[in-house]
């Protein structure tokens, strides 16, 4: 059986204050990150996603339970582990704005101990891949370009474990595509990716496994469709109404009306019923969109 690259077993963690008070931030969290897997951590702000990444990086000790990264304790063996871990915390990494993209990556690559020749080739390939000007100072880069450079830095040393905390900040559509390619490549090479993001559509698209965090606890974990099934969150459809004034009660069963959107279950029957209702009342239809189960879950909607 393949060993997990990251194993968290019933781990709890606390933040302590100077006044001696402590706040439980993670409670009996368990998580496995397997080779070739992309694992999405989802939850609202303050649910404990970044804290969990800090636990994996050994920046926060466990109160109870165990954390192991590549078979090692991250608190005592962090420097060894970091050779094989690429990371983006809170969507940020340090960049020297007065140096070029090439120089920034060369500096960071040398800190990962890459040999000079290999580093040169790797930096060039990444700058090409992320479509970044090699010799332009970073202070002339746009926000999106800086984010792409940060992503390039995270994978510079071909990590086996990639921890991406809010990697989409400032990325445009092209940046998203590059991020997806990066994750695919990492998985293909047997690496694992743990990702947190508020971009739900991205999370649904890329993840093979999802863990839902709520107030420091994992409330569900599994394949995305299984998790939603367990929690009772199915995808829904939202129809934007052309003439809200013409909406009359009763609306079709299973649907809700918020004054702008008519929302109900995503099914052929439901859609047919809603459209015929909108046609008969003369309310009309401007457009429709799918509301994913994960999005509903994160919003805290009731099932």
């Amino acid at each position: 059986m393949t060993a997990p690259l990251v194993l968290i077993d019933q781990a709890s963690a606390i933040y302590r204050s100077f006044q001696g008070q402590s706040r439980l931030t993670l409670e009996s969290v368990s998580l496995r990150l397997m080779p070739g897997e992309t694992h999405a951590l989802i939850g609202r702000n303050g649910a404990g996603k970044t804290t969990l990444l800090r636990l994996i990086l050994g920046l926060l000790p466990t109160l109870t339970g165990k954390v192991s990264v590549l078979g090692k304790d991250p608190v005592t063996r962090r420097t060894q582990i970091m050779r094989e871990v690429g990371v983006l915390l809170d969507g940020r990494r340090a960049l020297e704005p007065r140096l070029s993209g090439l120089e920034n990556l060369t500096l960071k690559g040398s800190m990962y101990g890459l040999p000079k020749a290999e580093l040169h080739d790797r930096v060039k390939a990444l700058l090409d891949h992320f479509d970044l000007p090699a010799n332009e100072p970073v202070n002339r880069y746009s926000r999106g370009m800086r984010q792409r450079l940060i992503l390039a830095e995270a994978v510079l040393h071909k990590p086996r474990v990639l921890l991406l905390d809010e990697p989409t900040l400032g990325l445009d559509i092209r940046g998203w595509d590059l991020l997806l390619e990066l994750i695919e490549q990492t998985n293909k090479l047997g690496g694992a990716v743990l990702i947190t993001s508020q971009e739900i559509s991205l999370m649904e698209k890329i993840s093979s496994w999802v863990s839902v965090l709520e107030r420091g606890r994992v409330v569900a974990s599994g394949a995305p469709s299984d998790v939603l099934c367990i929690l009772g969150y199915s995808a829904r459809v939202r129809l934007r109404v052309l003439n809200p004034a013409k909406m009359v009660i009763p609306i079709p069963p299973g649907f809700s009306w918020d004054g702008e959107f008519l929302e109900g279950p995503l099914s052929l029957e439901g859609l047919e019923e809603a459209i015929s209702y909108l046609r008969s009342t003369g309310a009309g239809l401007v457009g429709l969109e799918q509301v994913s189960g994960i999005e509903r879950l994160v919003r805290g909607e009731t099932t």
Binding site: R54, L57, L59, R78, T79, Q80, I81, M82, R83, V87, L89, D90, R92, R93, A94, L95, P97, K108, M111, Y112, G113
Partner: peptide, 20 residues
């Protein structure tokens, strides 16, 4: 206290932070 990064930035490399 590098404002462009998180406080733990020097802890994210395989080099002892004090050496950095």
């Amino acid at each position: 206290e590098d404002s462009s990064a998180e406080p733990e930035e020097v802890y994210l490399y395989p080099i002892p932070p004090i050496a950095t």
